[in-house]
Design a protein around this nucleic acid. Structure first.
Lengths: 368, 368
DNA sequence: ACCTAAGGTGAATCTTGCT
DNA sequence: GAGCAAGATTCACCTTAGG
């Protein structure tokens, strides 16, 4: 790969390098209207109070780095406005930006994007297939992050490789929710001690989809919060040029080593997200939520011997037992286990209908 | 259903009615600190430029109603701040709010929520199983909407029926991404012409999960943008009280008709699995007092590594430690904390039995 | 070599109630 | 309100060790 190609007027772009320093200063040192795509993974401004332990008493290794600390929402907003202004100056008129965040920061980022004149094209949800659970049972599992995709301004002719994404998605149009695993296993970079080199390394599969969808080969991709360089790594594989900016020496070192080992079009490395087409699990509770069965309605065992009543939370109550469709079926039969889906039925217009029919309906919908 | 019950000081709440008028004015006419939950589906501020046609040239019936028009982001922000302030005044200290939106408005709503002092608990993604495709192939299929769940302030004791949601989800904790179909078929209300009565009617399944998860029977739920009354309908079914506010006469009429036809589920069906925390507290000493365990008897850690002796006052003595079942367990494991109830076991007839079995016996007695 | 069991871990605003 | 003690609480992976 080449450094310092693609001159734009007097200045030149330091292609395929990692710039050391503050992202706003470094961006301001680059020529305006020179970048095709920006991917930004800014600090999330998590506000953690104390330690968190798992039920087995092991401690969660949380993101408590200094770079994620801001004194107030106002301070975070100032930072956001400043780096977005610098980013917007760099973008070509038909360039675009992606920003990723969580509920801690993404609403502020999104509003600032709009205020700065960016035009939101989609918000895209990264649904994590293996998120960390909520150990205390006080909230929903925080199972997704949000990305905002925006053009430099309204009416701009941004890049969108519709057909490529459709192919990636087995021939149907790509949706705004992407199911991808978090970065772990061999892809997760380790430091010399064997600990994770960066607390929030993003999976290459995510960047693969972003770059295939919104850049063309030869485009210049800037990542102002480069970290361990996932953006650069995927850009290199896909034949795009990148520029990274990273303040922390330790991250730059790991990223450079990573980049040096990557070859363009290393197909093997791209085989991360082949989809498994297992039958989706359908919770019985969905039949209740969706009104297919009514709370208070009676279910009948397929052998006609027992009945039980549906509750609003998708559990059953029978004589002396309550619990899941499986638990109540097992208890009534005195069996160690029972597949409630094939054991229970409901009545419609005098007919006895197995509840599994309703599950099949939902699965058919999901397949579309 | 009753109207005007639950007086709060001088004022009374117009329960289970639809108030006609501007939502901010109407909210300001209600007593402060009186509402348990607010569900709000405000205008999305869609900024549609022209007509959209499907590939077969049929015209998409878009949301272009007057109530969704704002002159600028600043105007939308003003409106948002104002209704959020009125909403926050109404909430009880431990109340909570849900707001639903799309990328057009949700970032502004989220930032305003945070600025107003609400404390975000989760952002929840409603992943539509049957969204409208992107006909032009210029963007990702807009296949989700975003809900923000927030308590009135940081540290508030909001309602979260963890076990009920877990039951709804087949025994695993509920995640922040919910896959549910959009509202159509028989559930979709039609006007006298057979057209959809409201452009953005929400599915009852969505409200079912919201209300089961974050309210209890008898709670008061306010929806300041009532529309055709999905919130009221599900609240009524689930035995919650509701208050709706709606400006448009046509929507109120449809909503009232809908509400009149709905019956509440029976009481048993509304019972929901409770968390252990809600069960009565049983001191370990009671097991000794009642002779279920004898002073001097040995307890064994569940992993078989440690043992300790029961004393007459309900404390344990082990090697070098004495104290509560929790303290001794934690000390032996070198852990910051330990739930002694699940950590210790005793022997009966050669069998190892967890002490929690004895606590459950006592709780079962207390329930009778 | 292959299978099973045990252990580790991930952007987390993660308790409640009594004294 | 601060301080302390009781006690409730996890899913989908991957790696490693052991059989």
């Amino acid at each position: 790969m080449t450094t310092m190609t693609k001159s734009k007027g007097a200045a030149a772009l330091p292609l395929n390098t990692i710039l050391a320093g503050d992202c706003i200063e470094m961006m301001n040192s680059l020529p305006e209207n020179s970048i095709d795509l920006i991917f930004a993974d800014p600090p999330y401004n998590l506000q953690l109070k104390g330690d968190l332990h798992r039920p087995d008493n092991s401690k969660v290794d949380a993101v408590d780095d200094a770079w994620d600390q801001f004194s107030s929402f106002a301070a975070y907003d100032r930072f956001t406005r400043d780096w977005l202004a610098a980013a917007r100056r760099l973008l070509k008129p038909n360039g675009a930006i992606w920003v990723i965040g969580s509920y801690h920061n993404i609403f502020r980022v999104g509003a600032s994007l709009q205020d700065a004149g960016f035009w939101i094209l989609n918000d895209v949800v990264w649904r994590k297939s293996n998120p960390m659970p909520n150990f205390r049972g006080k909230r929903f599992t925080n199972a997704h992050e949000t990305m905002i995709w925006a053009s430099k301004s309204e009416g701009a002719k941004y890049t969108f490789n519709y057909e490529a994404l459709k192919s990636l998605n087995e021939g149907v149009q790509m949706r705004s929710d992407w199911v991808l695993p978090i970065c772990n296993g061999g892809e997760r970079l380790k430091d010399d001690n064997g600990d994770k080199a960066h607390p929030t390394q993003k999976p290459e599969s995510l960047l693969h989809r972003v770059l295939v969808g919104s850049t063309n080969p030869g485009d210049v991709v800037l990542d102002p919060f480069f970290g361990t360089g996932t953006t650069g790594a995927v850009a290199k594989m896909l034949g795009r040029d990148f520029i990274g900016i990273e303040r922390e020496e330790a991250y730059r070192k790991v990223a450079q080593k990573r980049l040096d080992s990557i070859r363009k079009f290393d197909r093997e490395a791209l085989q991360v997200s082949a989809s498994k087409r297992a039958e989706p699990r359908v919770p019985f509770g969905q039949l209740v939520e969706r009104g297919m069965l009514r709370p208070g309605e009676e279910l009948y065992s397929i052998n006609g011997r027992f009945k039980a009543k549906v509750r609003a939370d998708g559990t059953l109550v029978g004589k002396d037992v309550k619990g899941s469709i499986h638990q109540v079926g097992a208890a009534m039969e005195g069996a160690p286990s029972c597949n409630g889906w094939t054991y229970w039925a409901f009545k419609r217009e005098g007919q006895i209908v197995p509840i599994d029919v309703l599950r099949q309906q939902i699965r058919a919908e999901l397949a579309n």
